[in-house]
Design a protein around this nucleic acid. Structure first.
Lengths: 209, 209
DNA sequence: ACCTGAACACCGTTCAAGT
DNA sequence: ACCTGAACACCGTTCAAGT
């Protein structure tokens, strides 16, 4: 029995994602989205509670393509998750900014999943469970911060300025991204406590103030 | 010769900072700010090119209180800069969000200064100059991400919810902040290449908070 | 189940003209 | 030097009512 289904939730997200990629986050407004769908603005509020919820759904669409490998050594898993995340963010206009905002607002389920997988990796690295979540968050702060920066520069000089690139990100962004990530990963390895990883700073314990 | 001076630039920034602290970033609008100053909205555009410029000035006001110590070992300087930054961000409503946005937009001079000082510290740690800037940025991404998160949780349960705190940040935020920071600092120490600083000793005096 | 119409309460920015 | 008046081109959200 085929229903009439004038618009499904997924149609709305599709169009929103297209709008984002074509015109950027500043032009992804509820009114414009409604217009583009041939709807009245109020109609969107039947599909989504508010704009944040819509943006969260768009964020999860952007992240849907990220890989899901669960095996292998923790260092490799962290690198896979992070490069996959970065690629997803770079794949659409203002992707990093949108996902950052949705993550900060707690509106992206897939970011929460990524956080869980990174937390598991941190635990496997030997970081005790009270701190593994924090290590995972630090990694996400880095990836989101780095990529938002990178993307804004990319989009800025794609739109005209900076002919002879001497910008900080200009040369070898992949290498730079990997370097910063290695900073975190090495820190995590250094702080591993349980798993026979001695020789590294006996004073790992956080001094309670 | 006292001029008439109906409003100086600094008066506008003062009132904007007050509005931010009293009502949050969402209510810091050009129109509301003008109304509160007894001005017409257009008047603000004599003082500032646009809203971003005004927000940048507010960001720099928030950061004005941060310490400026330039001596001591690099690990200590990094800790001092970062805890000073975090305290400044926490000192006013939505401080982390506002400063993050201004930093991302390149509109905060004082954040650029902080970046330079962290870059110098990274260089002193033995990281070669092509990567020192990136290490410094990573530290800032962490501090901004951590503190924005912390602050939104603080403000959320200050405003009602989460009576029995089992939130991730609930227990010992200072310790958690220091732990994440140490992750980066240890990573930096591990990556030091040039300066005869082998075998690195991550236990170099992280002063208790 | 999905949407319209219409309203409410706002935004940032520009710019000729005034004092 | 600093500001007004007035306009331009928008926002997000709600909700009774319609099909």
């Amino acid at each position: 029995m085929q229903q009439v289904r004038r618009h499904a939730r997924s149609d709305v997200v599709d169009k929103a994602a297209q709008l984002l990629d074509d015109y950027g986050i500043a032009d992804l407004t509820m009114r414009r989205l409604a217009r583009e769908l041939g709807l009245t603005p109020g109609a969107l509020y039947w599909h989504f509670a508010d704009k944040q919820a819509l943006l969260g759904a768009v964020a999860d669409r952007i992240l849907a393509s990220t890989a899901t490998a669960q095996d292998g050594p923790w260092v490799q898993r962290v690198h896979l998750i992070c490069t996959g995340l970065r690629n997803a963010l770079l794949s659409t206009t203002d992707g990093a900014e949108l996902v950052s905002a949705s993550f900060a607002a707690g509106k992206s389920e897939l970011m929460t999943e990524l956080l869980d997988r990174l937390t598991a990796a941190a635990a496997e690295a030997g970081i005790d469970s009270s701190h593994a979540d924090l290590a995972a968050r630090s990694v996400l702060y880095y990836v989101l911060g780095f990529t938002a920066d990178e993307q804004s520069r990319l989009q800025w000089d794609a739109a005209g300025a900076l002919p002879e690139t001497q910008s900080v990100m200009a040369t070898d962004p992949n290498g730079r991204f990997a370097f910063g990530l290695r900073l975190l990963v090495d820190g995590m390895a250094a702080h591993a406590s349980g798993s026979g990883d001695q020789g590294v700073d006996p004073g790992v314990a956080v001094p309670a103030p």
